[in-house]
Every structure is written in structure tokens, then in C-alpha cells.
Design a protein around this nucleic acid. Structure first.
Lengths: 332, 332
DNA sequence: TTGAAAGCGCTAACAA
DNA sequence: TTGTTAGCGCTTTCAA
């Protein structure tokens, strides 16, 4: 491996000169500069970010912890983050937690040791104390759709989204509106269900616990929830799934049962992942600007890292808006 | 930031002792060991992988370059890679190339500088000479679905897959079978189209250039290709899309046009991404064990890094097999 | 306009 | 059974 010493030697200068021409950190005569550059080229020299990071105390690497990068929502978010990071000269380490505390803990330890400059944290209900080491070790962290004391956060307006989706369905004339929530009872995403419940109340519709079911955010769990819902003696005419994947699962199940969407049952999703424009029928959903959200999170993190943010933790909330497509209609 | 010196000091030992108890690299008396561990704990010490990497000449970090991590196929592959890497103690840096040579080049440079131990390369037709620096700088590389001289590769049996899909359609009785290929004319994935063509020939079906169209691997391009195909004076009764996303796009278009799948048109995809089990109807596809393939690639890379592979470049080929679901039937 | 040298936080060879 | 010390490959202060 060729080092800065090799370059210095073949260029006939000192290593500090090489360093300075490479970083543009002080004036170097054109002639010496040329000799250095030529040596760099001839030796095919690539400076070691490792050594640099050790002295500069910054790695220009950030990490992203998601439950599962296959989930299209997180995939798109990751994409936005990676895009923003790339143009700013940062690399991103991808970590899947599977919502397992053990895996998260293992990753946290690895990442601190690797001295990542920052972390974007999207996942389970970790106890705040588990995050303490991040603070101690100077790993700037922004949380997504979660609030931890002392940490920046990018939030979603889940209550409003759940409310709007349900309100729309009620306006269409549906009186039996079901909701498929996520598994976690205490997280912010639960607010989508709360918004649903409130909208029902406001529309003068009696809440029915049987219509309020739970999924696992996956296609498959959407199918299962739909199955459960349709076994009811008085099944819903509209289903609001708290994310798009489950909504797609619902449509899949209805298709199997020869029920038509939206003629027999209306379906609304949440997030507006790319796929929803291409489902059959295209899905009405609470559209979130996912890519932009990813970029926004990364921007917040890099701003924090580079000291452009006020010392107190920041909170930014992103709203979703109803996007009407082919999966919804008035009840028959 | 607390260092190994701090730990040594509070434990009243030398730094080499600290290093050795942390790495288990030489015998240390139980008593000293306990003191060290206690100090580590009290100071909340995390060794710097950076410093370690500098002396050990290994970072335990690998990188993955994909065209786009949102594409479900690459997302699932990435997942398999990340899984395998994690359990082996490696982190993975995610890079999206958008099939842009410029971006790839920029990433290659960053990654070499970061001294990643290895790279998994899934993307465009880069000229082999662009990869030369990887060899020079000791970045072990395995290519996916591409062959570069001097590099390990994990390949897909694209010809056979294209053949099998088409053969199945012909057997069902279809005589007008269309194919939607990928954009790149010279890549291995093109073999799916070649397999299609051969199967047509073998079935005694006349090739028709109008039935052999091109997409961009995306949902949207699948829609567009379907639109083009259905404008034909004699449209196909079956469509083989060279990946699942395009197949989903085709179904989406047919749904818009009130054409039934499979009654009016049969559709076959390729890859078996998770989604295909939940489309309406579920998609018949050439199933590839995507997750396992990802793991297999990562295993190959780590084996190469750790010197468990023979010096000559390895080639492994993965076959896909027909998975019949609801999107195919005999022609009306 | 450039160079010498200290130091970033570790590992591991050598010594005791 | 443990300690001393020379690097790993850079950046940056101080000096010239």
C-alpha cells in the first residue's frame, strides 16, 4: 500500500507538503504542486481516510438503523438519506434491527467503536438509557418518528393522518370502517389509530372494537387482518390500513375472495410507497413525501454534526396528505 | 473521549495489558483482568476501531454498490448480505449508483480511501479497467450477475430462466408470447431474452420483433411496455417480463384496461420478490432464492477476504425455478 | 514557500 | 505474568 511517505519521496518534498496540496490547506508553489500531483498519479496513491479520521476525529460516515430495509417504506427513506449523504461526502452504514433489542445493542456498540459521526435511528421502543452511550461518545443522533429526551427528531403527524383517512371514508358514506394498526401499542405510530378513532367519533359513528385490529406492518399480516375482519357478522365496507404494505395485503385477500375493490370494499393505505401507484387497483393512501423526508432527516443530522443547529434538540414534523386513487368509493 | 491510556491508568496496568485482556490475546491473571474490566466499565470505554484498523490493516467493513436500494430485488439481496455480514461481525456501507458511471467512480474512490475490506458490486457495465484500482488496493470484490476477469462472481442462470418461463407459456398453448427485457443490450441479464427467443423457436413459434420490447426494470416501464404491446394489431396473449416489477406494471396496466389476468392475458415475472405473492392476482414467476443469494455472495466475499478461497477467481451460478401462481392460464 | 515532529489510539514484537 | 516501545498513515503546529 503506498503511503504519503512514498509520494513525498518520489516528489522530493516533505509529507506535510503532500498533505497540504491534497487538502488545499496552505499555499504551495505551482511547480511543487505539479510534482506532487504527478507522484500521486504515478503511484496511484489514495490517502487513507482511516489515518485521517484518527487525527481529525471525524469519519465522514454515518449509520442508519432500520427494522428492515426490505420494507419499501424504509427502503425509500434509506434512499433519501443515502442521496443526501452522498452529495455531502458521507457514507452510510446500513443496519437492520428486526426490532430486536439485542441486535440494536450490538449495532450501537459496533457503531460507537467505528466512531461514526452520526446515527439515524428508526426502530423499536428502546429505553432511553440504551441511547446514553451515543451522547457520551459524541455520536450525533436523530430519531425518526420517536421522541427521546435530548435527541433531535423528525416526526410524522400520525394522528392527523389517521384522522384524515378515516374522515374521508366517513364522508364517502361508509358507516362500518375498520382499522388495521401496527403491533406496537405505545409508539407514535399508534396515533394513526387514535386519529381513526377520533374521526369516527366526530362523524357520529359508534366505535366497534371488532373493527379495530392489529397487523405487523407486512403484506401477509394485512391479509390476515382482512380475513379476520371479513368473518365478522357485520363486516366493514371500508378498511384503513396504517401502512401501504398491509393495505396491499388486504387487497390481495379481497381479490382471492372475489370481492371487488372499491365496489365491495374500499381500502386506504398510509405512506404512498412507489408501489401503491401500481397496485390493482391503485391505492388511495395518506401520501408522505418519503424520499424528501429521508433527505430532511439526513440534512438535520449533518447540520447537527457540523454545528449548524442550536444546542437544544430539534423537532420537525412532516404531514401526510390524502391522495385519492382507485381503491376507494362510496359504499354500495 | 476515553482511551486505552485512561483505562490503563485507572486500572494501574500498562496499555498492552488492557489491549490483551480486551482481545484475549495473551494470558492475564484473573485479578488484573478483573481490575481492567472494572476500569473499562467505570469509564464506559469503547476501543476505537479506527486505531485498530490502522494497525491491523483491516476495517471489518464491506461495501455494497447497487443501482437502487428501493428496487425490491436489490433490497432483498442487500438484506441477505447485511444479515450474513452482521453475524460475521462486518458492517456494510450502502451505495446507490443509479447506474451512473460517475457515481460509481466517486464511490469506488471513497471506498478505497476508507479501506473497506471488500466490495460487492452489482451494477452497470463498467469497464474492467475502472475496477483495476480495487485490485491494486487490496479491496476484495465479488461481482453479481456480471463477469470481470480476475474477479469472483456470483451468476444467475438467466438463459435457462428465460427459456423455462417461455416454454411454460408455450406449453399452456399461447402462440403470441411477448417479452419485456431490460434496458442494457450487452449484459448477462439479456440472456433472459435469449432464453425466451430460443424457447419460442423450440416450440415452433415464429419470432416477432414487435413482441420483443424493452423496459427499464421499473413498475412504470412495465406499464408502458404493456401499453405498447396491446396496441399491436395482433396483441400477445401472454407476456413474460424479465423482472417482477415490470410484471406488476403490466398487471396494473391490464387492470386499467379492464383486461383480466390471466383470462385475457397471462403474465410471468422473474425473481420472486416478496410482493409477488400479494399482487392481484399473485404472480407466476421465475423464483430466485434472493435472500439466500445475498447471503451466498457475502459468504463468498468474506471467505475471499479471510483467505479461505483458492487464488483463482470463483464462479457460482444460481438457478431460478418456475413458480406457478395465479397470473397464468391457457389462452381463451 | 517548505520541512520537522508531535500526536491521533491502538496492536504486537520484544524485553523483563 | 506484565511493561516498553515502535509503528500504522495521516494532520497540523511550530519553526525556518
Amino acid at each position: 500500500m503506498t503511503t504519503i511517505y512514498d509520494v513525498a519521496q518520489t516528489a522530493g518534498v516533505s509529507i506535510s507538503t503532500v498533505s497540504h496540496v491534497l487538502n488545499g490547506t496552505r499555499f504551495v508553489s505551482d511547480e511543487t504542486k505539479a510534482r506532487v500531483l504527478q507522484a500521486v498519479d504515478r503511484l496511484n496513491y489514495r490517502p487513507s481516510s482511516l489515518a485521517r479520521a484518527l487525527v481529525r476525529q471525524e469519519t465522514r460516515t454515518i449509520a442508519l438503523i432500520v427494522p428492515d430495509n426490505v420494507n419499501p417504506f424504509f427502503a425509500e427513506l434509506a434512499r433519501g438519506i443515502e442521496d443526501y449523504g452522498f452529495q455531502a461526502g458521507y457514507n452510510v452504514i446500513l443496519c437492520n434491527s428486526d426490532r430486536s433489542l439485542t441486535k440494536e445493542q450490538a449495532y450501537l456498540d459496533m457503531l460507537i467503536s467505528k466512531r461514526v459521526d452520526g446515527l439515524i435511528y428508526m426502530t423499536s421502543d428502546i429505553h432511553t438509557e440504551k441511547l446514553q452511550p451515543l451522547l457520551d461518545h459524541n455520536v450525533r443522533t436523530v430519531a425518526f418518528d420517536r421522541e427521546y429526551e435530548g435527541f433531535d427528531a423528525l416526526l410524522l403527524d400520525n394522528f392527523q393522518g389517521g384522522y384524515d383517512a378515516t374522515h374521508y371514508l366517513a364522508e364517502l358514506g361508509h358507516r362500518r370502517v375498520a382499522c388495521i394498526g401496527g403491533p406496537d401499542a405505545r409508539t407514535r405510530s399508534r396515533d394513526r389509530v387514535h386519529g381513526y378513532q377520533q374521526a369516527l367519533l366526530d362523524a357520529g359513528l359508534a366505535p366497534d372494537a371488532a373493527l379495530d385490529v392489529t397487523g405487523q406492518w407486512t403484506y401477509q399480516s394485512g391479509r390476515e387482518a382482512a380475513s379476520q375482519l371479513l368473518q365478522l357478522s357485520s363486516p366493514p365496507t371500508a378498511i384503513f390500513a396504517c401502512n401501504d404494505a398491509m393495505a396491499i395485503g388486504v387487497i390481495s385477500f379481497l381479490h382471492d375472495r372475489n370481492l371487488r375493490v372499491p365496489e365491495d370494499v374500499s381500502v386506504v393505505g398510509y405512506d404512498n410507497i412507489t408501489l401503491t401507484a401500481f397496485s390493482s387497483p391503485p391505492l388511495t393512501t395518506m401520501a408522505t413525501p418519503i424520499l424528501e423526508t429521508g433527505q430532511c432527516i439526513c440534512e438535520m443530522l449533518l447540520d447537527r454534526i457540523n454545528g449548524q443547529l442550536p444546542p437544544e434538540p430539534q423537532r420537525v414534523t412532516i404531514r401526510s396528505e390524502l391522495l385519492i386513487r382507485g381503491s376507494t368509493a362510496p359504499p354500495a
